[in-house]
Each structure stands twice: as structure tokens, then as C-alpha cells.
Design a protein around this nucleic acid. Structure first.
Length: 486
RNA sequence: CGGGAUGUAGCGCAGCCUGGUAGCGCACUUGACUGGGGGUCAAGGGGCCGCGGGUUCGAAUCCCGCCAUCCCGACCA
């Protein structure tokens, strides 16, 4: 691939480097036609292009769920008040942000219903009916659904009143199996984020103050956005026997005794789309990793002379060959827009690779390829083109991941003293790795004073032996990853 | 809930101080020429100036009240 010429600067005001990153984000979401505000406060309309990305994410996740033995099912949207109220911590966590249904038709309901904020309670109720014996275990069910949480502050994809997600709910015979499942599914999320979204994540244990309401332990994957803030991209909870005891999910064990099951739940949402935007985007708008790009290649024919008889058939032949190799291709043959306009539009919408073909290329038996990630534009021979394109898409996928890793490493610091931690948080943000004693009080004080929270305690963290807590100075037990978060 | 700001065309904004025909950019419609990085020219369409009241011959503009949104706190997957 020989380098021909540089692409001129993108004529736009949007940039992720600007102080107003939020503005850049909203601008990209709307101009790339991913989503829009709806008339209902705090709710989002996902537009076809944004939804196509979600569908590709669903496929990537579903394939992994199936490979780990999970099956899909569906549970109701409404949950009776009494069910939600059964688990004490769960109620306290979710009651402040649920939507209530009090009336059906013209009649006042005898018992209020909540619109599910999550489905542990309704699913737990059903599991109690389905489980009799150890032979019925494990239950490995996932559901794709919408949930509602009445948030005060909302932001497209990141936090909306209603959002789409998947929630896995499993029941196991032993504590060990449940823990294994919890960690296994977090690993699935990590693999998905890194392999498909090209987004490196830190996987680890949440602190008690940030764990799921009703869980024994919560694990998370945390990604770093380009403005230096962290985003929780997925969670996996070990529920222990908490919900089993409340919903009476019991089974007769191999030793004839009656036992409670051990549960897990795990989920990722459309927030992942927001994560991708903020992890990869640049001055030109969105950059999509090829694996989740609705159009991996957009072919822009150059309309000159009798292009419909010469250029267009060649473009269609290239398209057919690429489609035969499993590439998602769109020919943008609209006559209503100029080529330059199309170049910019598809860049804004994050298409990984653009293929230009015009009369000059046909003469020379070549095409022009423009990479979205590096914005390099170069010609490539027609000979062996489809193989070259397939390989180039893999290169782009890889390059985006490498770039995101480099960015994260560049924005991860170590601080053993509180002064250092504070100084870093005031300046260029990112992850700060500091020794921590494990006390919630220290965690809370750091949050109050620096706005940074403990994102998680990574599985592969370094030993804190001999170190002292960054806040209180007592002996540290672990290295915690701090960051300002979304 | 406290502090600050803003509501004018689909989007982004000017006009308000000093009252007098409702403006600009983008987008949209029609036509011609164009087309390898957001084309040019010409002609058009689109407004409860957030809502309600007051002052005035006359209010987007001044006054009062309300509502909504955004930012900073507080609160929260």
C-alpha cells in the first residue's frame, strides 16, 4: 500500500481534546445519527445506525454466551411491589429509582407494580419453582431486555431512564461454582470488549460501597475514555445465597439435605456504545472498530462522465467479491451528494475503511483506500484487492486496540502518597494506582476531596505488601485503581 | 433542594442595554452548471420570539409571575 497524499484537516469544530468533551460527545452521537433525545424526558431514541451497532454487539456477546452453555429466555417487564421488597439491600438500592404503575385501565391496582430496574426478583421467583433437585442445576439463562431506572441526570447511551441490556441469571449447587461462573462471565466481557470493541479494560473486584445491591461480591470491567475519565463497562455479581434465601430457591442435594442455590447475575448495556464512542473517537467524529461497524467498507464511486456504465459496475463487482468474504460493504451511489461530502460523512460515522473508485483508477487498474483510524489515503492494485481489504480491516482492528492500550498506559500513574494522588487528579486525569487499607471511610474521604472513586481492585494487581494506605497511612492490603468516573 | 445562566425557524445563534416591518449561519425546496475532501450561482419555503399577565399608541425588547432546560454543588450502576 503506497502512500499517495495526505487528507486535509477535517473542517469541523468537534474535538475530544477540547475542554468540553461532553459537547463533543453529544455532537458525535447526533451527527453520526446514532441516537437522539425523545419527547420523554431522559429517554433515548436509538436510530437505525446506532441500533445496527447494538445488533452486532448482541451477536458478539450471544455467541460467547452460547459457547459457555447459556440459553436465552424472557421474563416480564412488570414486577409486583412485594417481590421487589423481599431482599432488604436490594430494595434500598433500587427503590429510589424505580417507576411505578398504579393503575390499569380505569382501575386502581390492588398492588402496585414496578417497571423492572433489573430482574433478580422476578427471575428468582421463577427459579424457586423450577429447581427441585441438584439434577436441575445449574440454570444458565440470559435475557435481552429493556429496564427502567429513574435517573436524575441522564446522558445519551451512558445513563438514560430506559436502556437496553442483557442480564444473565444463574443458579448453582455450590459456592465455588457460583464464584467460577461470576468470574467466567466477567472474562467473557473482557474478551468481548478487547477483541470486538478494541477497548482495553481493567478487570477486578468492586469495593463494598460500589457493589450491586444484594450481592456478596461485584466484579467489573473498567475502560478509560479519551478525556481521562473511567467508565464501568460491565459487571458480574456473585449473589451468594442472598436471593435464594429470600425467594426460597432450594434443592435436595446429593447427600439428601435441602440446600439453597448459589446465584450470579451479570449484565452489559447499550452504554457499551457510549464507551466505544469515547474510547476511540477523534476530531473527525466516531471511529468504529471493524468488528462492530455496520459498514466495514464504504465504496464511493466518483461520478464522472459515463460512470454508471464504467465505474459503477466495477464497484459492484468489488462489493460482491468482498461480501463473498463476509465483509459488510455499502456502495454510496447517491447522486444527491458530492464525493467530498460523502467522504466526510462516512468519516463522521466511523466507517473503518473507505474505497474510492473513479475513471482514473479504472485506467490504472487500482482503487484508493482511506483508513479511518490513521486517516491515511493510498492506492491499491485491483489484483488481490479483496484479500488486501480483509487483511487491512484486521490491521485496523488491531491498531485501534494498540492505540487504546498506549493511551491507557500513558494515563495511568502510580501514587503512594496522598499529595501525589490529589495532584494528579487535579491535573491530567486518568487511572491512579494507590495502596489502600480497605476501609470505606478512606475511600469516601478520597471521593469527597478529589472526586475520584475506586474503580476496582484488579485481579492482576501488584502486591501492596509493606505499603501504607494512601489516605490514612495504616498498612495497605491492596492496590486500588482510582479515577474520576462517569 | 441551594448558587449561576439560558429559553428567538429542524440545529447553532444574533437582536434586548436605548421599544417601531423577525434576522444570520447550517439544514430544507426548485433550477442550472458541477462532481477525486463538506461545490457555485439564482430563486424560494419555514416563527405562539417558552407560557401568562402588566406598562405603552406600539413589546422579542421594559416590569411581575410561572414553566422548562443547562452548568456548579448535593444525590445516584
Amino acid at each position: 500500500m503506497s502512500k499517495d497524499d495526505e487528507i486535509p484537516d477535517f473542517p469541523t469544530e468537534i474535538t475530544p481534546q477540547s475542554k468540553d468533551f461532553g459537547r463533543w460527545y453529544i455532537d458525535v452521537v447526533r451527527r453520526a445519527e446514532l441516537a437522539d433525545y425523545s419527547p420523554v424526558k431522559g429517554c433515548m431514541v436509538i436510530r437505525p445506525y446506532g441500533y445496527a451497532i447494538w445488533e452486532l454487539m448482541q451477536q458478539g456477546l450471544d455467541r460467547r454466551f452460547k459457547a459457555t452453555g447459556h440459553v436465552n429466555a424472557y421474563f416480564p417487564l412488570f414486577i409486583p411491589e412485594s417481590l421487589l421488597m423481599k431482599e432488604k439491600e436490594h430494595v434500598e438500592g433500587f427503590a429510589p429509582q424505580v417507576a411505578w404503575v398504579t393503575q390499569g385501565g380505569n382501575e386502581q391496582l390492588e398492588e402496585r407494580l414496578v417497571v423492572r430496574p433489573t430482574s433478580e426478583t422476578i427471575i428468582g421467583t421463577m427459579y424457586a419453582k423450577w429447581v427441585q433437585s441438584w439434577r436441575d442445576l445449574p440454570i444458565l439463562i440470559n435475557q435481552w431486555a429493556n429496564v427502567v431506572r429513574w435517573e436524575k441526570v441522564t446522558r445519551l447511551f451512558l445513563r438514560t431512564t430506559e436502556f437496553l441490556w442483557q442480564e444473565g441469571h444463574t443458579a448453582h449447587e455450590t459456592a465455588e461454582e457460583a464464584e467460577e461462573e461470576t468470574r467466567k462471565m466477567l472474562a467473557v466481557y473482557k474478551d468481548f470488549a478487547e477483541a470486538d470493541l478494541a477497548m482495553p479494560v481493567v478487570d477486578g473486584l468492586k469495593t463494598d460501597s460500589e457493589k450491586f445491591a444484594g450481592a456478596e461480591r461485584t466484579y467489573s470491567i473498567e475502560a478509560l475514555m479519551r478525556d481521562g475519565r473511567a467508565l464501568q463497562a460491565g459487571t458480574s455479581h456473585n449473589l451468594g445465597q442472598n436471593f435464594a434465601k429470600v425467594f426460597d430457591i432450594t434443592f435436595q442435594a446429593r447427600d439428601k439435605s435441602v440446600q439453597y442455590v448459589y446465584g450470579t447475575s451479570w449484565g452489559v448495556s447499550t452504554r457499551m456504545i457510549g464507551a466505544v464512542i469515547m474510547a476511540h473517537g477523534d476530531d473527525g467524529g466516531l471511529i468504529l472498530p471493524p468488528k462492530i461497524a455496520p459498514h466495514q467498507v464504504v465504496i464511493v464511486p466518483i461520478p464522472r462522465g459515463n460512470w454508471k456504465e464504467t465505474v459503477l459496475p466495477r464497484a459492484q463487482a468489488i462489493r460482491d467479491e468482498l461480501v463473498g468474504r463476509g465483509v459488510r460493504v455499502l456502495i454510496d451511489d447517491r447522486e444527491t451528494q458530492t464525493p467530498g461530502w460523502k467522504f466526510n460523512e462516512w468519516e463522521l460515522r466511523g466507517v473503518p475503511l473507505r474505497l474510492e473508485i473513479g475513471p482514473k483508477d479504472i485506467e490504472k487498474s487500482q482503487v484508493v483506500l482511506a483508513r479511518r483510524d490513521t486517516r491515511e489515503k493510498a492506492s491499491a492494485p485491483m489484483e488481490g484487492l479483496s484479500a488486501h481489504v480483509v487483511q487491512l480491516l484486521e490491521t485496523i482492528q488491531r491498531a485501534l486496540f494498540d492505540r487504546a492500550i498506549a493511551f491507557r498506559d500513558d494515563h495511568t500513574s502510580r501514587a503512594d502518597s496522598y499529595a501525589e494522588l490529589k495532584q494528579i487528579m487535579e491535573g491530567r486525569p486518568g487511572f491512579v494506582v494507590s495502596p489502600w487499607c480497605g476501609s470505606a471511610a478512606c475511600e469516601a474521604e478520597v471521593k469527597t476531596e478529589t472526586q475520584a472513586t475506586i474503580r476496582n481492585i484488579p485481579f492482576n494487581g501488584t502486591s501492596a505488601a509493606g505499603k501504607t494506605c494512601v489516605k490514612c497511612g495504616r498498612a495497605a492490603t491492596v492496590h486500588a485503581w482510582f479515577a474520576k468516573a462517569y
